[in-house]
Design a binder for these strands. Sequence first.
DNA 1: CTGTCCATGTAAATGGTTACATGATTTC
DNA 2: GAAATCATGTAACCATTTACATGGACAG
Lengths: 190, 190
Amino acid sequence: MALRHAVLAALLGGELSGYQLTKSFDLGVANFWHAQPQQLYAELTRLEKDGLIAGREVVQESRPNKRLFQVTDAGLTELADFTAAAAKPAFIRDDLLVKVQAADHVDTEALIAQLSERAAFAQGKLDLFDKLLRNMRGERTEDEFLRGGDPIGPYLTCLRGLAFERGNRDWCQRTITILRARARSSQQSI
Amino acid sequence: MALRHAVLAALLGGELSGYQLTKSFDLGVANFWHAQPQQLYAELTRLEKDGLIAGREVVQESRPNKRLFQVTDAGLTELADFTAAAAKPAFIRDDLLVKVQAADHVDTEALIAQLSERAAFAQGKLDLFDKLLRNMRGERTEDEFLRGGDPIGPYLTCLRGLAFERGNRDWCQRTITILRARARSSQQSI
DNA sequence: CTGTCCATGTAAATGGTTACATGATTTC
DNA sequence: GAAATCATGTAACCATTTACATGGACAG
């Protein structure tokens, strides 16, 4: 049951509406978790019912009203308890890897197409994360920010997201190169 | 619905029993997917009913009988179709990252304890993957194996697993260092 | 004689995805 | 005039986890 804690963690930066939460969880800005809008709205309702967040209505004129939520003291306690408890290891679970696992038995071109797409996607996220990091640290160098910048949590998770996507991109590109080379040499031997 | 394809991909290497499948999916040997034993047994039943795998009973003396499964032609077709279809992007979903996201609001020591544990876990997987890779390529150098070794699929996914766990370990260690340094300097300023 | 490995499941509960629904406003 | 953005949900379905169950063989 970590979605609730992910939402709590996301709200620590300041109050947000369901819609704004949706945006951050969607664009991968919240690289520490991923969730559908429907899940978020449902979770917000539950969290408020349980008193872990408090919502306030904001009336708007030329757009629908919205509710902004912020973490309560009870919410902070809940997060502290969650942090103290043991974390389960995170496993990879990826369609694309399943396909590559079967590489010897499926069409190489189809595989390469998907790897390219994934590499491009990863590059997109890389660019985004890079921008976010620069934004967070402002004028400071990375070292300066890491030593005393504030808040540090989102910066650290963003660094993990960056490394993950870099790993993704590099592996995809390398795999493409390998598969292409093998395709060429097996053609020659026919 | 990719568990079925993960199972099919895992069976490509040769026929396996449910129990043997369990082992590989458990130990992270199948780094492309992760699943509980119960899920695997259920999926095997379904796959056999759908004719994508065929099982044969193996009678044993001093241990329970078992059923070995292998992929049928229909199963291979199914895998090919799956490979041709677009893959969804893989998202990180990790308890530990949620905790780090909240780093500014929770106990630093608890966080560091968890990061150390994760780093050790990642190191364990690194060692395992390294051994697996060496096993697969035998006498050959990595380059030789990548150029013509067989099967290549499992080798490629294992490389991804290796890179992922290396990323995990390095990030955990770096994060620990950063958090410790900050804890020290904030103590001095009190 | 206790614990681990082999071997296979069922049942209940929780978590996540997909499809559907609504309606005003601003931007192209 | 069409599409995207803001704003919030409900309902049905699928996937995953957790708990429970069984039983012989072998190692310490």
